[in-house]
């Protein structure tokens, strides 16, 4: 199983150069059955990453480009009166896919954002009293431009919590960039990717990830992290209980990817930054002078158990 995973990772890494850690975390997020928020300036390969992932995992993928005039119906679909059948027929929106790439979510109005987030959370869509379940592996990758760009509606804090992880791609380093320049068109490469995994594999592993053993010390460690994050916060900030669960789930998935049956503190630490950063505000300009994110500082302030 580990070899299959490694194969998948290798394949994606052949397209997304120099971002092994991000790719790994992305896969981890999928295994933990969570949704991903990628935040970065345009052009660093957010879309490519999503496509490569979908291809390699053999998932159907739809892409929604969020704009300021996007309506909820454009995402979840709507019921249209079908004259031939004399009744309302539900036309599924792009969200009915195993993997949805929501590009630049912060360009859309809060209404549209809400629709997406609600669907993500419930894993089902209700239109006119009818509930339509979303496909079984359901995975949203939302991308977002950095907040201080003009003309955006940043996701409210409460909504950010619904993403299991938030990642930054960042500019590739020189070698990776050279590779990109020499390697030809990304889009063609992505198209040529073959699925490495089947959906069954994925579902099985998602199930397996939940069963990874979380021992007492690890639970205490997570609790310590939560407690630590809540210290010294004006107006009751800090990590929510949901964040704690997210941390545990991701750590389990990470341990699974490491080929282990139990969670180590290292697993928690590996995913902590991705899981906690958007819940703690440790990104963008947070006023920290030493460059370390709040999440990293938090990790270093809590002794491992």
């Amino acid at each position: 199983m580990k070899s299959l995973l490694d194969q998948t990772l290798a394949q994606i890494n052949s397209v997304i150069l120099g971002k092994e850690q991000v790719v790994r975390l992305t896969l981890c997020c999928i295994l933990a059955r969570g949704h991903l928020l990628i935040e970065d300036v345009p052009g660093v390969g957010k879309t490519t990453l999503a496509q490569a992932l979908a291809k390699s995992l053999g998932l159907t993928m739809r892409r929604v480009q969020f704009t300021s005039d996007l309506l909820p119906a454009d995402i979840i679909g709507n019921s249209i009166f079908d004259r031939s059948e004399q009744k309302f027929v539900f036309h599924a929106g792009p969200i009915f896919a195993q993997m949805v790439l929501a590009d630049e979510v912060n360009r859309a109005s809060p209404k549209a954002q809400s629709a997406l987030l609600e669907a993500m959370e419930e894993r089902q869509v209700t239109i006119d009293g009818t509930t339509h379940p979303l496909p079984a592996p359901f995975f949203v990758i939302a991308t977002q431009n950095p907040l201080n760009q003009v003309g955006t509606y940043p996701l409210p804090e409460s909504q950010l919590d619904r993403f299991l992880m938030r990642l930054e791609l960042g500019f590739p380093d020189r070698d990776a960039e050279r590779g990109m320049l020499m390697g030809g068109d990304r889009h063609d490469q992505v198209k040529d990717l073959k699925p490495v995994l089947t959906i069954e594999h994925l579902l099985h592993w998602q199930q397996h990830a939940r069963e990874i053993h979380v021992s007492e010390p690890i639970i205490n460690y997570v609790l310590d992290l939560l407690e630590a994050s809540r210290r010294n916060q004006p107006a009751g900030g800090g990590l929510s209980p949901r964040a704690g669960m997210a941390l545990q789930r991701c750590a389990q998935a990470w341990a699974l990817m490491e080929g282990r049956q139990m969670v180590y503190p290292e697993d928690v630490q590996a995913v902590a930054s991705a899981v906690m950063a958007h819940r703690l505000g440790g990104f963008g300009s947070d006023g920290s002078s030493d460059g370390a994110t709040i999440a990293e500082r938090l990790i270093k302030s809590v002794p491992a158990r």
Binding site: Y264, P265, E266, Q269, I299, K300, S301, V302, P303, A304
Partner: peptide, 9 residues
Amino acid sequence: RQDWEGPAK
């Protein structure tokens, strides 16, 4: 050992 360091690392 840094006290935040896990055993494996």
